Amino acid sequence: MDNKILRKLFLGFIQIHILHHAKEEPIYGTWMLEELREHGYEMSSGTLYPILHSMEKDELLTKSESNVNGKIRKYYRTTDKGELVLAEAQSKAYELFKEIKD
């Protein structure tokens, strides 16, 4: 299978996953990488961070910084716009999965 095609397809799933978790509580990159790996998405921080930055630029996420053990950790939360996008994505995903499950 062509990894480029799968990567492009899964990008939307990854963004939905990020929005979901960032709505529940603030997330940070390393934690999100581990969470995505638990669901079978193998990616590096060099792939994840541009996605987070793009989602922040699109006003889907907001970023705050905190000093954790002497290092600055960037936390991301879903914005109101991100929550609306997530709700729409959940609805569309539900309809799609109902259709293709069999």
Rank of each mutant, 00 (worst) to 15 (best):
A93F: 07
G46W: 00
E42D: 13
N3M: 10
I27F: 08
F13L: 11
N69M: 15
E24H: 04
M1L: 11
H53T: 05
M43F: 06
V85D: 04
F10E: 01
Y75Q: 10
F97S: 12
D2W: 00
I100P: 05
P26H: 14
L19V: 07
T62Y: 07
N67A: 06
Q15M: 12
Q90F: 05
R77A: 09
A89C: 05
E56S: 07
Y76M: 08
E99A: 13
L33D: 03
D2F: 02
E65I: 01
K23A: 07
H39L: 15
I14Y: 00
Q90Y: 04
S64Y: 08
E83H: 12
K8D: 10
H20A: 13
M1C: 03
E88D: 15
D80M: 06
M32K: 06
K23Y: 10
E59A: 11
T79M: 08
E59K: 10
E59P: 01
E38A: 12
K101D: 15
Y41F: 14
I100W: 11
I18N: 01
S64F: 07
K63Q: 03
Y41N: 15
E56P: 07
F13I: 13
G46H: 00
L9D: 06
F97H: 15
A22R: 01
S66Q: 09
L33Y: 08
E38H: 09
Y94W: 12
I14A: 00
L36G: 02
W31A: 03
E65W: 00
T47C: 04
E25F: 11
K4G: 02
Y41P: 05
E24N: 05
E95I: 11
S66V: 00
K74L: 07
K74Q: 08
Y75L: 13
A22Y: 02
E25N: 09
L6H: 02
L6S: 03
K63R: 15
E59I: 02
G82F: 04
K71F: 13
M55H: 10
L96A: 15
E35G: 08
L6Q: 00
